[in-house]
Computed example of a mutant assay.
Amino acid sequence: MSNYRREWMPGGTYFFTVTLADRRSTLLTDAIEVLRQAYGNAAHSMPFQTIAICVLPDHLHAVWRLPDGDSAYSQRWSLIKSCFSRSLPASDDLGASKLRRREKGIWQRRFWEHRIRDDDDLARHVDYIHYNPVRHGLVERVCDWPYSSFHRYVTQGVHPPDWAGGTELDGGFGE
């Protein structure tokens, strides 16, 4: 068994990538209302601040700030994934391991997390999140993707609607 190391910093700010098991799936955007409900339920029962988020068809990226004294981001993702999964039918192709764990085969078991270290690191990750639909060829302009906190940033005056204008951003990291 792999030895996964996670960094737990109470009150920390983290970047996450959470992915469906089937990378060809469009389930997250097809069932966006179910995902919003699951996300809202988790945020209500275990509060956290969403600094930025972008939902793509097969994965999502988010930056969260956890409450002081709290580092339980894995439990929050577990809540979101399980609530979302319970609302959908199981995959037709489940192996014995997934059946034993009562998994539906919708999500990859693990997720990627990175603790945000400073303001520059935060800005790079938020830009990466907002530009991701363009990077994946889903839209030509950031403002054209509906499942992103980018629109909140525009409303708050942080970015103009034509931010990044379809030009490649160098975030310094891949997916």
Rank of each mutant, 00 (worst) to 15 (best):
S97C: 11
S97F: 07
K98Q: 15
L99H: 09
R100D: 15
R100V: 12
R101M: 11
R102S: 09
K104Q: 14
G105Y: 04
G105E: 10
I106E: 08
W107E: 09
W107M: 04
Q108P: 00
Q108W: 00
Q108E: 12
R109L: 10
R109H: 01
R109T: 09
R109W: 04
R109S: 07
R110C: 02
R110G: 13
R110I: 06
F111E: 13
W112M: 05
E113K: 05
E113C: 08
E113H: 14
E113Y: 11
E113F: 15
H114Y: 05
H114M: 12
H114P: 03
R115M: 14
R115V: 15
I116D: 04
I116F: 00
I116M: 03
R117G: 03
D118H: 11
D118I: 06
D118E: 04
D118A: 00
D119L: 08
D119E: 14
D120R: 10
D120I: 05
D120G: 03
D121I: 07
D121Y: 05
L122C: 08
L122R: 13
A123R: 12
A123K: 12
A123W: 02
R124E: 01
R124W: 02
R124G: 01
H125Y: 11
H125P: 03
H125V: 00
V126I: 14
V126Q: 02
V126F: 08
D127E: 13
D127G: 02
D127H: 14
D127F: 01
Y128M: 06
Y128G: 03
Y128Q: 06
I129V: 07
H130N: 02
Y131G: 04
Y131T: 00
Y131S: 04
N132F: 09
N132R: 02
V134R: 05
V134K: 01
R135C: 00
